[in-house]
Design a protein around this nucleic acid. Sequence first.
DNA 1: TTAGGGTTAG
Length: 863
Amino acid sequence: MNEPTQTRKPLKTATYIRPRTNKQLSTTTGLKRNRLLQSAVMVYLVASMQFSPGNSLIKVGIFRKSPKFILLYQTSSRINNKQTIRGVSKTIATEESFQEPPFVSANFSRIQRLGIRLTGQLQQQNVLEAYPTLQELMRIFDQIQIRDDERISISEYVDATIQAFARKSFSTGDSDGTLHDKNTQRRIVLGSKAIYLQLQSTALVPPYNAVPESTLLAALRAITQLSEAQINNGDENGEELRSLELSFRILQRLLTGVGVRRQTSSRSSALSEKDFNMVLNAFSNAGKMDMAHRIVALQERTPTAPQLSKVTYSILLKGYGRIGDVNHIDWLVRSAEKNGIVPDTILLNSLIDAYINCNALDKARVIFEQMEPDTTVQPSVFIAHPSPRANLRTYNIMMKGFAKIGDTDSALQLAAKMKQQRKWDSVTTNTLVHAAVAAKNLDMAEDILMERTFKINDKDYPQHPNVEAYTELLDAYGKDGQLDKAARLFECMKERSVQPNEFTYTCFIAALARHGKIDQAKRVLALMISSGLRPTSITCSAFISAIIASSEASEDPDILDSKVDEGCSILRILMKSGIRPNTATVATLVEAMGRCQPPRVSEALVLVDKLENDRIIPDASPKVTTAVIRACGSAGDIGAALDALRRLEKPDLVALNAFLAVSCKCNCESTALQVFDFHFRQKRSFYRIAPDVITFSTLISSLMKSRTSLPKATKLYFEMREQEKILPDKTLIDIILKAMLRHAPSGSLTKNEAVFITRVLQDAELLAWDTDQLGRRKRAVQNVFADLLRDNCIKGLDRTVSSVNEDDLFQRKGWNKVDSGFSLWGRGRSNAKSPAEAKRDTPVDTFLSKHGWNDVDSGFRIL
DNA sequence: TTAGGGTTAG
């Protein structure tokens, strides 16, 4: 902290002077609380909120001789004893400077008392304790009966209090900018709650019922950073999605102006491109591309918002790449071209990477080849411009692509070229090792590490840059049954001073456990802890699932029993040393208990109950509850499975599919159909989930067991195709064809059955089959049903449908055209009748309705 | 502000 900051914006009524003597100060003490003093307190409170957080109040007083308020404040770093008073700056506000001294009623005092307590708590950096005070203050304000004029001054006061609270909550403070500690996260959550207290208060009068733009901006930045941090941490409580949604809502408000208080002079130019991109990036990283799309829609349609840039496109490409949506990537390329985006290396790198993540290596290669330094290839995209040149990252991305398909030859060729061009770093080594491992060429991976392990100075790196490659190879040895080589590699790392990290230990422990070497695994775990590393919940998960997996090779049912016991004992040991299992781990154990002979369902229920009661895992988590459903199913206890299903407030698709599978397995098809009907038909809009191909496969395959329920199966199949617009997968096709062949060995077929089988074969054409796989199936069907099919339907069978219908595709992705943006994008600004109209800061709602846009789909609705 | 590499997973 430097000098006492002379406030960003001094109080209109305050002037600053130096204190003269201590004597003067002492005259201010010991005054009775009177109306003047209370006014002074209020002036102080308002003033202190405008000073930087480091300043704090020492004393509030009034000169006895001249009626002036005196406010003393100083930087917190200098507060320790009386003598520092001398260096204190002070603020004086004259009484006259108040046009009308605030009338102090009992109500106001009640609120003031809370305000003073809150300010004190904030000064002690205690946001967590200050929040309940703020809540109380708002509650009282909403309840009390007051005069209109008084309401205005209290509103002003309460607003200042909330802003002070929000400033403290959203300041990243003295920390290094990382948001990993729980307190910082909690603070930000409370800050956003405070904003909503203000927005929802009925007591505040305008403009104080709206939040200042600067506060919302601070909130946006803090909350978005928070959700990024949570995503990186892999928090599984879903909290990060809520804070992401919050980011979006705040962005909406800033754009539409709903609930926003702006400085009269300033236009809403406060949102920078960086702000948009920050939120966009958070959604892209989370794979929430529907939301990312909405942000872009907002940005495009708001006349004052910044233009879409190459950064925007880079972020979008990354996001669509992550969810493997090649259609949207192609479409983004066209959109960027249309918007006159001139690509740079980063944009093309993003594009190549996105294609690779969608398994479209050919498309990636086309871009890559036109970026190579000695290329003669004409640019295929962004044609008007010469392609930017490839850099080290371009090569590394491309190598990842070769690694992904196990093409070691191409990877090695590329490596040779990179070596020649002196473009090589530790990521290159790691990726090349990854290529070798993906091609199951572990010897080659070992050779690369031998030759290309980076020589480093320990102090420069928190960890060795090649520890990832070693970890991957060690894991591969472990999974390939070469435990001895894994162990040797672990030793070899020490020789080359590559320190194993959490990942390495986790893989090694899992490798040992998979081979039944539980005691050794425990020793490695101890070694891990003694080397200063903390096992994570993933270590726990890997350890226990490896133990359970080690039983799978065995035919002996008793083995699983003993492995479950071992798993439970490890769980106890880990929990004693403070490591919490996650829901995946518990689910693994619960399911394994269900598979035991006889099933150990009651034990599983006790385990879940205990962990939930001890608050180790959340109540009725989807993963664990689904495991319980499966375990109950193994025991044939459909009632218990139903009880478990009912624990889920809103069961998700996996849970429902599991339950349907369980009821079909227990021959309770009617229960299955009831549950299906309830969730996917009657309560569809409430549960907001749609069935998928697995849902239908489960039901159809079960119903097709007997010919009497075949009409129901047929009906479901057509519902899947016509209403849900879901394509079958190969498994479902085979299930149906096999069942039909089984039911009709003599070649008898009703008309409906003939229509059904013809439709199934037509649909089968839409899928990509390996050589003659489909031909064999068709011949099998024709051999049995030749005569019956030939007359009416078989003609259709030869018709080849080469590509999937676009509507089907949208449906499969769970989109309609509007949400996917195909019919919305690009119309925003161009629909404005004149440049003047586009520039004017029209409230977005009127702007939208004038153009007939649906505000829900466009992302403009304030949620 | 944006691009590359490793562990568990209903």
